[in-house]
Design a protein around this nucleic acid. Structure first.
Length: 467
RNA sequence: GGUGGGGUGGCAGAGUGGUCGAAUGCGCCGGUCUUGAAAACCGGUAAAUCCGUCAGGGUUUCAGGGGUUCGAAUCCCCUCCCCACCGCCA
C-alpha cells in the first residue's frame, strides 16, 4: 500500500514508478475520487458537528421537560409536548443530508481502496530501468578457487557432468514418477540420502541464521487468511499463484490460502501492532513449506527439482525503523548472510541487481542471487548442457509498503512520538530442493558419487559421500 | 460437533440511554526528593482521519456490520473472534 498523502503531494512519482515497473495503475482516477471524497467528508463532518452541538444543547433540556411532564397539569402538559416536539425536530433536516453524504462516501471507499491496492511502490531511483529479467545487471560473482563457471566443467573437472536429473535417478535420491502419481506434475518424492541432504541443508542454514547471525527462530502458519495475503502484498496481484482453500462455507466466514513463502507468516506476526522502536530491529528466521501454483509457468522447467509446487524454505525477515539508510544497511547485511552461506557450501554465485520491470509491485529494490548449475543451460557442441546461473535467492527491500498494508507501526523518538509504518525486508536463506541442484551437480564425481560438502557433514552423520 | 460465558485504552478492569474517549490500578514518560537507585509524591500518557501556512478546530472509533433513538460502550439483529466444559483426535 502506498501513502495516499504522498500520492496527492507528488502523483508524478507514482505514475513514473508504475510505468517503470510496467504495471498499470490509474493514478488520475484515484486523485479525482480522493478529491471528491474529501469534499463529501468535509461537508458531512461539518453537519455532524452541528448535529452533535444541537443534541448536547437540547438533551438535558428534554430530560428536564420529560420529568416535569409527570407532575404537570393538562394545560402545561400540552405546552411541554409542543416544546419537546420542536426540540426533536431541530436536527431532523441535518440528519437526512448527513445520511446521504455518508452513504455516498461508503460507496466510494471500497473502490478507492481497490484502486490503491493496485498502485505499485515506485522503484528506487538507483534501480536500473528495464523491461524484465533480461535487463538485470550483474553486480558481482564469486566462485571457489578450483572452479570458475566461465570455464567448462569438463575442462576443470576432467569429465562431463551429469544433470541433477541423472544424478538423483542414478543415486536413488528422488522419485518423480511416484510424486506425479500422487500429486500430478511438478511433484516429487525425496528418498533416502535425497531426503537426508534436503534436511541437512535446511538445518545448516537455519542454525547459521540463529546461532551466528542472531535471528529469532520462529514457526509460522502456512495456511492464512486472505487479509494476511493482501497485507503482505502478495494479493491482489499474485492471487493466481496461491492455493485457495474453501472454508467460508464451513462457518468460519473466511477462505484460507496456502502461503508461497514463510515471509507471509513472519510479517503477519505483527499485523495491526504498534511496536516500541526500542524493540527493533526484529530479525526473524523460519523454515516452512512453501506452496506455489506456478500458474502461467506451464511448460517452463517442468522436469526436475527446479520449479515445483511445494518445497521447503528458510526465510529471513527484518523489521526496522522507518529510515531509508537503515533499510539499505539491512538489505546489504541480509545479502551478506547468504553470500557467507553459499561460500561455506562452496557454490559459485552471482548477485543480480534486478531492473524496474522485474521488481514486482511491492519492492523498491530487489537483488537476486543466482547459483551456478552445471546441468542447466543450452546444450554445447557435444550435446551436453553448458551450465547456467539460476535463481536460488531473492532479497527484497520494501520500505514501508508492506507494513502500511499490514498496519504494522513503530513508535518512538525516531518517529516523533507518533506511530509510523515500519520498514521491512526479506531474503531467502536457502530453498530446498532447488538448492540440491547446484549441490549435486557441483559436487558430483567422475565415478557417479557425490561428495557431501564439508559444512553439511555434521548434519549427515559425519559422512562425506553419497553413492 | 454440543453447551455455557465473554470481547471496553499498552495490560488488567469499571461502566446498562445524555454530564463517557471512557473511573481505577498496573505499565510507560517527565518532575520533586536522593550522592545514585528504589520507594513515596506530583503531572502527563489511544488511534485514524478531515479542515487550516501556523495556532488550533472538527469527525470517527468501546470486536465488525446493520438497526432503534433527538442522542448508543450501554437497547435490538447479524457476523467474526476468544474462553470453559463435554465429544472426537496427531
Amino acid at each position: 500500500m502506498i501513502d495516499l498523502k504522498a500520492l496527492r503531494d507528488d502523483p508524478d512519482r507514482f505514475k513514473d514508478g508504475a510505468r517503470k515497473k510496467r504495471i498499470a495503475a490509474d493514478i488520475d482516477q484515484i486523485l479525482q475520487i480522493d478529491d471528491h471524497r474529501r469534499r463529501l467528508l468535509t461537508e458531512a463532518e461539518t453537519l455532524r458537528s452541528e448535529q452533535n452541538r444541537l443534541a448536547k444543547e437540547s438533551g438535558p433540556q428534554m430530560g428536564r421537560l420529560s420529568a416535569e411532564m409527570k407532575t404537570a397539569d393538562a394545560g402545561r402538559k400540552a405546552a411541554i409536548e409542543a416544546e419537546l416536539a420542536e426540540l426533536r425536530n431541530r436536527p431532523a433536516a441535518l440528519k437526512a443530508r448527513i445520511q446521504a453524504l455518508e452513504g455516498e462516501i461508503q460507496q466510494i471507499d471500497p473502490r478507492l481502496d481497490e484502486l490503491l491496492l493496485h498502485v505499485p511502490q515506485p522503484p528506487d531511483p538507483d534501480v536500473p530501468v528495464g523491461a524484465g529479467a533480461e535487463d538485470n545487471v550483474e553486480v558481482r560473482v564469486w566462485h571457489p578457487p578450483h572452479f570458475d563457471p566461465k570455464k567448462s566443467f569438463e575442462a576443470q573437472r576432467g569429465f562431463r557432468p551429469k544433470t541433477h536429473m541423472q544424478l538423483v535417478h542414478d543415486l536413488g535420491l528422488v522419485s518423480f514418477e511416484r510424486g506425479v502419481k500422487m500429486s500430478g506434475t511438478r511433484s516429487y518424492v525425496l528418498t533416502g540420502d535425497g531426503m537426508l541432504l534436503h534436511q541437512a541443508v535446511l538445518r545448516f542454514a537455519f542454525e547459521r541464521m540463529v546461532m551466528r547471525n542472531g535471528f529469532t527462530p520462529v514457526s509460522v502458519p502456512v495456511i492464512v487468511r486472505e487479509e494476511c495475503m493482501v497485507g503482505t502484498g502478495f494479493f491482489p496481484a499474485g492471487r493466481e499463484q496461491a492455493y485457495h482453500i474453501e472454508e467460508s462455507k464451513r462457518g468460519s466466514g473466511y477462505d484460507l490460502f496456502l502461503t508461497g513463502t514463510g515471509e507471509v507468516g513472519l510479517m503477519g506476526l505483527h499485523q495491526d501492532e504498534i511496536l516500541d522502536e526500542r524493540s527493533l530491529p526484529l530479525k526473524y528466521v523460519t523454515v516452512s513449506p512453501c506452496f506455489r501454483r506456478e500458474a502461467g509457468a506451464a511448460g517452463k522447467d517442468t522436469a526436475g527439482l527446479y520449479r515445483v509446487h511445494a518445497f521447503e524454505k528458510v526465510e529471513q525477515v527484518v523489521i526496522c525503523r522507518p529510515d531509508e539508510r537503515e533499510s539499505r544497511v539491512w538489505h546489504a547485511k541480509m545479502i551478506g548472510f547468504v553470500e557467507e552461506l553459499l561460500r561455506e557450501l562452496g557454490l559459485p554465485y552471482r548477485l543480480l541487481q534486478c531492473c524496474t520491470g522485474d521488481l514486482g509491485p511491492k519492492n523498491a529494490d530487489m537483488v537476486d542471487i543466482e547459483s551456478w548449475m552445471p546441468g542447466r543451460g543450452d546444450a554445447g557442441p557435444d550435446g551436453a548442457p553448458t551450465g547456467a546461473w539460476s535463481e536460488t535467492h531473492s532479497a527484497s527491500r520494501l520500505y514501508d509498503f508492506q507494513c502500511r498494508r499490514l498496519n504494522l507501526r513503530v513508535k518512538g523518538e525516531s518517529t516523533g512520538g507518533r506511530p509510523a509504518p515500519a520498514h521491512s525486508l526479506n531474503n531467502t536463506v536457502i530453498a530446498s530442493p532447488r538448492v540440491l541442484i547446484p549441490l549435486l551437480e557441483m559436487y558430483q564425481n567422475q565415478d557417479g558419487s557425490v561428495t557431501i560438502p564439508e559444512a553439511l557433514r555434521p548434519y549427515m552423520a559425519g559422512r562425506d559421500r553419497i553413492g
